[in-house]
């Protein structure tokens, strides 16, 4: 247990170093000839979007494992992963919207990818609400796990339907064209920031999972004492 805490602290330090390195590269990155300085927004936006999806993958794997093996550990990971994913999705939405203002001229253009992330964010909120709305913790774990799996099946359908919807009904000049790809000297900060965000996600997950685990232990002990 103590060793686990040391590992977590180490992860936190690695995250800080990676973030500092990434930010140094971002600071020194040349301005994009099309987007100018606004390209710096993408160094936060793109890794956040990737992590919002990656967190859902972790959430799904933990949920499947929990349903299958009925292990408590997987359920703790699942409970902790939902708010972490929600945080990444929230930053993705905010940064995408702010990027859109100078680039598209509006805060919100119902861009296909941003719309999908918005649905993902609502789904994360629903998953958190589902768990907290039930008194029986064991049942809450199982119901939430099934909800996560339903969402995992639904997300690709949402993504494709929104994609078709936006590309068929919107001229490509506004929003439909999506974001230009990043190459050359702008790639280095993006890669480092992406790695840093993976470390940050893992660290946040560990911090939250520790709190969840302790709360469950405490509740169990209190119940035990009431019975005794």
């Amino acid at each position: 247990m103590d060793r686990f805490l040391k590992l977590q602290t180490l992860l936190g330090v690695i995250t800080l170093i990676l973030l500092a390195t990434g930010l140094w590269f971002v600071w020194n990155a040349p301005a994009d000839f099309q987007q100018g300085g606004a390209v710096r927004i993408l160094f936060v936006h793109v890794p956040s979007a990737k992590m919002a999806l990656f967190a859902y993958l972790v959430l799904t794997l933990a949920s499947v494992h929990h349903l299958w093996k009925k292990g408590e550990g997987a359920d703790i990971i699942a409970e902790a992963a939902a708010p972490v994913g929600a945080a990444f999705a929230a930053v993705t939405l905010a940064s995408g919207s702010i990027w859109g203002k100078p680039m598209w001229g509006t805060w919100w253009a119902w861009d296909a990818r941003l719309t999908s992330v918005l649905v993902l964010f609502i789904l994360y909120v629903g998953i958190i609400a589902m768990r907290s709305a039930m008194d029986d913790a064991v049942r809450a774990g199982r119901v939430t796990a099934i909800l996560v799996i339903i969402g995992a099946v639904d997300l690709p359908i949402i993504h494709f339907s929104v994609q078709w919807w936006r590309t068929l009904h919107q001229p490509a000049s506004l929003g439909g064209g999506g974001k230009p790809s990043i190459t050359g000297p702008l790639l280095t900060p993006l890669v480092i920031m992406s790695i840093a965000f993976v470390a940050m996600g893992a660290y946040l997950l560990a911090v939250k999972a520790r709190a969840v685990r302790d709360r469950r232990l405490l509740t169990a002990l209190e119940v035990e004492r009431e019975l005794a």
Binding site: V119, V125, G126, M130, V143, I150, I158
Partner: peptide, 23 residues
């Protein structure tokens, strides 16, 4: 079925159903 045992289940049902039926 999932929200049956939950508190304020009608709100929860709407919150879950609306994003999932978006497609």
């Amino acid at each position: 079925v999932m929200t049956q045992a939950a508190r304020s289940r009608e709100t929860l049902l709407a919150l879950l159903l609306l994003p999932l039926v978006a497609p």
